[in-house]
Design a protein around this nucleic acid. Sequence first.
DNA 1: CGAACTTTCTACACGCCGTTCAATTCGTAC
DNA 2: GTACGAATTGAACGGCGTGTAGAAAGTTCG
Lengths: 234, 234
Amino acid sequence: MTRRERLRAETTAEIKEIALKLMAAGGPDAISLRAIARDMGMTAGAIYSYFATRDDLVTTLIADLYTALVDEAESARDAVPAADPGGRVLAWAQTVREWALANPQGFRLIYGDPVPGYQPPEDGPANEAEHRACRGLTGLVAAAWTGPGPGSYTWSDFDPGLAADIRATFPDLPPDAVALTLRVWGRMHGLVALEIYGHLRTLTRDPAAIYRDEMIALITSLGLTPPATPHQRG
Amino acid sequence: MTRRERLRAETTAEIKEIALKLMAAGGPDAISLRAIARDMGMTAGAIYSYFATRDDLVTTLIADLYTALVDEAESARDAVPAADPGGRVLAWAQTVREWALANPQGFRLIYGDPVPGYQPPEDGPANEAEHRACRGLTGLVAAAWTGPGPGSYTWSDFDPGLAADIRATFPDLPPDAVALTLRVWGRMHGLVALEIYGHLRTLTRDPAAIYRDEMIALITSLGLTPPATPHQRG
DNA sequence: CGAACTTTCTACACGCCGTTCAATTCGTAC
DNA sequence: GTACGAATTGAACGGCGTGTAGAAAGTTCG
């Protein structure tokens, strides 16, 4: 690795690092090339040597954040024995909410309007991370899947790449289970999104309890046994 | 009403109208005072006679949109006889999704990051519309509420104004039912938010069916009978 | 070593934005 | 008709993303 390559990697990392710092402080809108350059003692134009445009930088940040989120969710899931599928679902769900609370601006960047005028690209690593999250959720649903389902869906109802991926990993899983996976995703997402965007905190003092109750109900509705936990508030 | 008052009301309405048009075309970020003024053949500074700041205009727009959404949901609910509480829930849910699909940028404005640097005020008509939505949902839950619940919640867990409001309208409803209401809200919100922000459409070709299945399951989990409807796709 | 080339960076320009302010028009009321 | 106040203009300030020209510095090859 030449000196130039090393410097380039360091500068790229520093740009992303400062961008994340600015985002954490002032929200996704605070990610401005001029502010980053100011922090680095550079000019705004210099960043164009590392990212073709500001949207490219944002896309990279989204991919990094999304990957970090899925990493955390996966290891939290794997910390619960496979013999406790309900506990694995809860571990995943709690990790998602806690990550969102710890990185609210990151959550907004991934799931909301990232920055003014940003249009997410069709492909790219961000999409890869989303597929990974979907695969993880499908695994949780697969562990709970019993019946054949009503047969309302076909594989053609889903993204071809995702469908092929799931069929390779879970050969016996019908398309109905993928539909259920998306429903589970929505159910986990709803309360967290409302909370992060401030719609829940003004109405209740204990969003954690609401979310926990909902996730217990979700686990029960999957036919699993929710982990027995002490009644805790906060 | 004097001529000046009439002109003022007309101009205020025109500003909001153009702002909504710009938002529908280019997203919440496209709401710029300069663009509005350009469309009206005015100067940007002139708008400050009508709205103290751009955030004030945005707050007004949010309140208007939120009120329109709740209006639609309420009349869709009332179009279903009260003897069919499951049908009322479905009518509310479908209206929310369809309104969001018809006004995706409005949905983002209400439930997402509205515009760069915007901070929602604590009070204001937007908050009032949110309370109205919450009251509507509570009515749907109240129609399904049977048991006393586990008693996990107290009235102090919720916003005092909302709690007082609900206790006045539904004297026999315990706080547990309000917690359930928030969970129902989250469950209706999740899939719609994912769809509007483009996370669902890339994974499935039929978000409507997924959402419908989820709402049927929600109605069933409330102990209600979902309306029997033909199996339709789209 | 030194010349040729590439990458990185600055400086400046353009057009966009929200916001402020003095000056000016113009409807209204006395 | 004149005085008042609301509506509006036009210019300004600072900030933004994005280009472009040219200087500076690293890399490669003769």
